[in-house]
Write a protein that binds this DNA or RNA. Structure first.
Lengths: 214, 214
DNA sequence: ACAAAGAATGAACAATGATTCACTTATTTG
DNA sequence: CAAATAAGTGAATCATTGTTCATTCTTTGT
């Protein structure tokens, strides 16, 4: 007997995996999935490209995991906002507003998660997560219908419309082209210009649900 | 003097371009942009790959043109539906309904146009065309506001929400995965199952606009 | 028929980037 | 220390596709 994985080694490996993951995430945050190449990630993490394949099966797998982790955070935030006190309508309103505001605050990453062209495996995750958002909204809509604050409707379909409306509304403002234009004009995304955008998205959504609120 | 482009030749070239274009379109209709490779198109059109580059600058250019042509048809249909007689609301309703029904009738192509991952140049066209849809809707919304059938609102933002809601609602039903499942179950997309889907999308949208209609 | 000009050809090429693997280095244990 | 085992390395390889271009085939006008 000569070598057996020891605790110290196990920890070191866990650390290495974490570091690779973290660096890959940073690559995406900086330049989107497009520019996140294995070579870059390897360099950033200070390992050889081959090493990455000891920890992840493939590039797609790695970035699917990145996507999942980043998006799950947002889904959780939505779920959280929907789990507070208050009427279903006001909770939905808060959740939508928060989602949009968070996206506009971190536009590069948000764009990557919402609209950037990505590998098929990552795209598959995206579809799944859009459904995840929709399911949370759906639940809240059902509650609203039950408590009478939302008229009876196909909760499933309405929730999908919600997801589509908010995503589409953000695509333009988040797009790299837009970001470029804003960098030239003023300092950064000024919140004062974003407020009305968010307001009108939320208005449309709530009214689509309830028939009131404008 | 020995050769000068003659009428006959000019026509033949126009024909050739059309044939290549048509075959490329058919490739997309069958398998989406993904499977539409230059080699395939060339084979389908009965020409060499090099010939294609006499008629189109690049693959992206060719498929961007395909995309434009196919999407313009849909935009025109929407514009047409919005240009009829009647209140803005009822025209919008018709336009939305027609759009969804057309997409569900040709799901493969619709999916390619709406949601398939595509080359950057084609993606750019897609963004442009989404704006084109939105602008038409926006115009109708303004008219509705003027005539009093739609309450005052940010027409621009609302139109974007419309586009997003309807697109997102269709992504699921149009996706190849879904198509696969339906092929197993029954014959094709049965219109009787689509009706409620379309209805609820349209309901949500109209209510989002007007606050009534459920 | 022949020369000039253009069109068509398709195999070779180029570019991109993920993945592999023969080899090196590090760790553990007797 | 030496044997055993695993982790790490990174240049080479592979795979995929779009694009080019030297060559061949067609058309046209004299």
């Amino acid at each position: 007997m000569a070598y057996r994985e020891t605790e110290k080694m196990r920890n070191r490996k866990v650390e290495a995996r974490k570091r690779i993951f973290q660096c890959a995430l940073e690559c995406v945050m900086e330049g989107g999935f497009r520019s996140a190449q294995i070579t870059h990630v390897a360099r950033a993490a200070g390992v050889a490209t081959g090493t990455i394949y000891r920890y992840f099966d493939s590039k797609e797998e790695l970035f699917a995991e990145i996507f999942r982790s980043a998006t799950q955070r947002e889904v959780d935030k939505v779920a959280e906002a929907l789990a507070t006190e208050g009427s279903a309508v006001s909770r939905l309103e808060t959740a939508l507003r928060q989602f949009a505001e968070r996206a506009l605050r971190g536009p590069t990453m948000a764009w990557s998660l919402i609209a950037e062209p990505v590998d098929p495996k990552v795209e598959a995750e995206r579809l799944l997560y859009r459904q995840a958002y929709a399911r949370h909204f759906e639940q809240a809509i059902r509650e609203g219908i039950e408590e009478g604050s939302i008229p009876p409707q196909e909760a499933r379909q309405s929730s999908t419309c919600l997801v589509g409306a908010i995503a589409e509304s953000l695509v333009g403002p988040l797009s790299p082209a837009q970001a470029e234009a804003e960098k030239k004009a003023d300092q950064t995304n000024s919140p004062d210009k974003q407020q009305p955008l968010v307001d009108s998205i939320v208005c449309f959504c709530i009214q689509g649900l309830t028939g009131t609120g404008r």
